[in-house]
Computed example of a mutant assay.
Amino acid sequence: MRIARWAVGGTVSEGFVVGENVIPFPERRTVADVLASGLEAAHGLHDAVAGGLRPDDAHVALAAVRLLAPLVPATIRDFVAFEEHVEGVSAAVDGKSEVVPEWYQAPTFYFTNPHTVIGTEDELSPPACERLDFELELAAVIGAGPSSTGANLRSNEADAHIFGYTIMNDWSARDIQSREMKVRLGPAKGKDFGTTLGPWIVTADELAPYVDPEGFLAVRAEVYVNGTLVGEDLVSNMGWTFAELVAYASRNSRVVPGDVLGSGTVGNGGCLAELWGRRGILEPRPLQRGDVVRMVVEGIGEIVNTVGEAVAASPVRAARKTSRARMR
């Protein structure tokens, strides 16, 4: 089952993708409504809508619509769950290829901006930067689960809160990110200008055949720049399962329907920074205006974005220096 949001002209609709058509939810329901109802209710709604589809029913060809991001996220947590990615990027940052011991102790994530999410085929508006990069990821989308609070879940409970999955591109301005993280905080402005989600949400049961005996999703992920394959990996190379990521996110906290949890960047060229770190040079070159980034994940589909013109930012004043002996 696939769930999407789309636009025709200025009208936005939300519903199911059935074959090569899109069918709106009845009674003006939204993706948020469906996530809050849970996966079982969504299947019942899908069967009622798609099962009664007739040639004269109001539906639209998928090719005739512009797909939007498949949901308006409540929050976006982005993990760093691939050891190979951590090792390669560390070399790009400080010249030393390593995975710090703390990485193995627990899954680490940061929060990114749900207000700058774009969909497939949208043009990315990056900040003015020297090292624009992509990050190939798979993301879990949270729906209603057996725990009404979504707090302090165990991994076996957390799995039932995963409604489905979507492809995620965590766009990154590496030079801005590097400056920020020297202050031991972030990433912030090096990330929050854009995140692609799409092309739709594929429900968890559809991907069940790809789950390996250890609970990992053994789906292939690929990224292309201007038609050239740059990176490829199996999502099952994660250090933790998605259920474990959800459980950790809920620790002393909550996950709620509409939350998005990114896997973090896959290894083996899932981003340019990993390759820069391993090769010691900016090869392939950083992304530039007009570049087309295409990501493909087995069992889900693909997202495609073109890099647009950089947006010049207003200058930032340097901080004043103050005396620590100053009277308070």
Rank of each mutant, 00 (worst) to 15 (best):
V223P: 03
M295H: 02
P284G: 13
S147L: 06
P24S: 14
T11C: 01
P26L: 10
L282E: 14
H161K: 10
Y210C: 10
D47N: 13
A312T: 15
T241C: 11
V260K: 00
P107W: 00
E283S: 13
T203H: 06
I142L: 11
E14I: 09
V18P: 02
M168L: 15
P126S: 06
N226A: 05
G10H: 10
V117D: 03
E232S: 14
E83R: 15
D212R: 05
A318F: 07
E206Q: 11
E214S: 14
P107Y: 02
A160M: 10
V89A: 12
G119N: 07
G19C: 12
G150P: 05
S125V: 14
S263N: 06
T116A: 13
N113T: 09
P26I: 06
G52I: 07
S250Q: 02
V86H: 08
A106S: 11
H85E: 04
C271P: 04
Q288D: 12
G51H: 09
V311S: 04
E83N: 03
G38P: 08
S250L: 03
A106M: 10
P187I: 06
G119I: 06
A36Q: 05
G231W: 05
R320A: 15
E302C: 09
T322R: 14
A247G: 14
R5D: 05
D192H: 12
T228S: 12
A61Q: 10
R2E: 13
N268M: 06
D175Y: 06
R174A: 08
E102R: 08
T149R: 07
